[in-house]
Design a protein around this nucleic acid. Structure first.
Lengths: 167, 167
DNA sequence: AATCTCCATGTAATAATATAACATGATATA
DNA sequence: TATATCATGTTATATTATTACATGGAGATT
């Protein structure tokens, strides 16, 4: 394990302090470059949805995204939002939080990984960590002959800031 | 770790062969006894819903349960099913599978635990294993100051039987 | 026994999340 | 330009879940 990975496990992005403007720009730039390189079409709707997600470190429901799209002038119906999300998820720019039926931007898109989400029940921020738990799961699964194709790992509780407040 | 726990990790209940009639009876008896002991009311609807869940080693959606209730003569509306499920989950007799928005009976009710679900995408059976992953998550969470209150761990893929078929 | 309280259930209405199906439009390439 | 492919527009509807309020039933208190 590199020290960089250890850092990630310790500080789920989203709770840590950081230059958020930069964070948003970087993520959009990365996505743009990656799509260019892969011949993927980061169309206006898709880009806009990604932007909405990156701007928050919270998850957004599909209909919240739809509202934002409308406010941005995209006179959109549900399938528009769902299709954009489908694209973003498929190519690793976003994840679905199953516990919330909602969506978040991925903190390090384009890399294949199994995210562990930490969902704050108070401020609704969502942090993405990488704990390597999936390898343990693989071991357990293989022992019983189960072939894992996708893994959902989500923890719900209090983020550092909200935990302090509730003392 | 006891050898009993190791066995559980290796054979998620649901995929292993077993005497299912006995399995159902035992589970209902355990639930009945536990409710008696705790002063909980395992009413007809609640008991029936638990029975439906135990009979399957698959998850059932709330509306599937509702249909079964109706067929069993319970002329029921959605809140009836959701309230029964709420009771069963609260007291450890059932779990919600977030990935599927569906519900399964717990394989060893009344014990506090963090289940790991293995969901077969073909036959839809759901196995419940216990991998101890939550302690690893606790460590990762504590390092960043996050307080975990609830954990969702679900893997989706092919169960042993379906994996063989798809070869 | 009457009444009270608590919990559970019955019922109607609606909210929130998601998809199906088909028409139209845009882009790239032969 | 023709054509194939992918993306979007649009309507309708499916699926999952909750709110709100009325009714009922069992045990405790008087």
């Amino acid at each position: 394990m590199t020290s960089d990975m250890a850092d990630q496990a310790k500080t789920p992005v989203g709770f840590a302090q950081h230059d958020h403007t930069q964070c948003v720009e970087d993520a959009l730039a990365t996505a743009t470059a990656y799509c260019e390189e892969q011949g993927l079409r980061l169309t206006p709707v898709r880009r806009k949805v990604l932007e909405f997600l990156i701007k928050e470190h919270r998850s957004l429901g599909a209909y919240a995204i739809l509202d934002l799209l409308r406010k941005a002038g995209f006179n959109a119906q549900p399938p528009v939002a769902y299709r954009a999300l489908e694209f973003l998820i498929k190519h690793g720019f976003a994840h679905k939080i199953e516990r919330l039926n909602a969506y978040v931007a991925c903190v390090h898109p384009t890399k294949d990984h199994v995210p562990t989400f930490m969902i704050c029940r108070t401020c609704e921020k969502v942090g993405e960590a990488h704990t390597g738990l999936e390898s343990t799961m693989q071991v357990a699964a293989q022992a019983s002959g189960f072939q894992i194709e996708r893994t959902v790992i989500e923890a719900e509780g209090l983020c550092p800031a909200c935990a302090v407040e509730s003392d």
